[in-house]
């Protein structure tokens, strides 16, 4: 066991002080040490997106991030997106469009979508942006490309794109469009 290094990190608004083995990834620190299990481990090698969190506002893969390297940073997981006004519009849209099935990739998808919408608002292009110097319009093709770093084996892709499309354009129907549950 190597010596541990003290660090602090704010997760979903709560500050934590802890000491970590330098080998500990941000994902393992969240899940095993801080018991924040809302970020999921699908591959541990950057190949699926299930561990996506917002790190200081940008979407990243927590499985390929060393915890010690992120001392002092702010992490938001799918659980921390809600505000006093209720669920985040992207979260609402995922519910409304049934943009998930087993739900395992979902927290990562939602963090990724929040990041992707923000990137598009900031004018960042993608591989399918026809005119690299022009404006970015988040149409279905753009969304699918920007969300491709999040695999969904249940293949909820069609609904994920619909959810992101509506959330991005502020037209997400609230859950009331589907009969609310018990």
């Amino acid at each position: 066991m190597s010596t541990t290094i003290p660090m602090s990190i704010t997760v979903d608004g709560e500050r934590h002080d802890l000491a970590v083995d330098p080998r500990t990834t941000l994902l393992d620190a969240l899940r095993e040490r801080l018991r924040v299990t809302t970020a999921k481990k699908g591959c541990d090698h950057g190949q699926c997106g299930a561990c996506t969190v917002l790190l200081d506002g940008r979407r990243v893969l927590s499985c390929l991030t060393l915890a010690v390297a992120k001392d002092g940073s702010h992490v938001v997981t799918a659980d921390g997106l809600a505000t006093d006004d209720g669920l985040h519009p992207v979260t609402e849209a995922f519910l409304a469009y049934d943009a998930y099935q087993c739900g395992f990739c979902t927290p990562g998808q939602i963090c990724s979508a929040v990041g992707a919408i923000d990137e598009a608002r900031r004018g960042m292009p993608s591989a399918v942006t026809a005119d690299l110097t022009g404006e970015v319009t988040l149409d279905r093709t753009e969304i699918a490309e920007r969300m491709s770093g999040n695999l969904c084996r249940c293949a909820a892709y069609v609904n994920i794109v619909s959810a992101v499309e509506d959330a991005a354009h502020g037209t997400a129907p609230r859950s009331s469009t589907l009969e609310a549950q018990a």
Partner: peptide, 12 residues
């Protein structure tokens, strides 16, 4: 009918 466990899944 919306998935009963939906809110839990979308918040992780």
């Amino acid at each position: 009918v919306r998935r009963i466990e939906g809110p839990d899944k979308v918040t992780g």
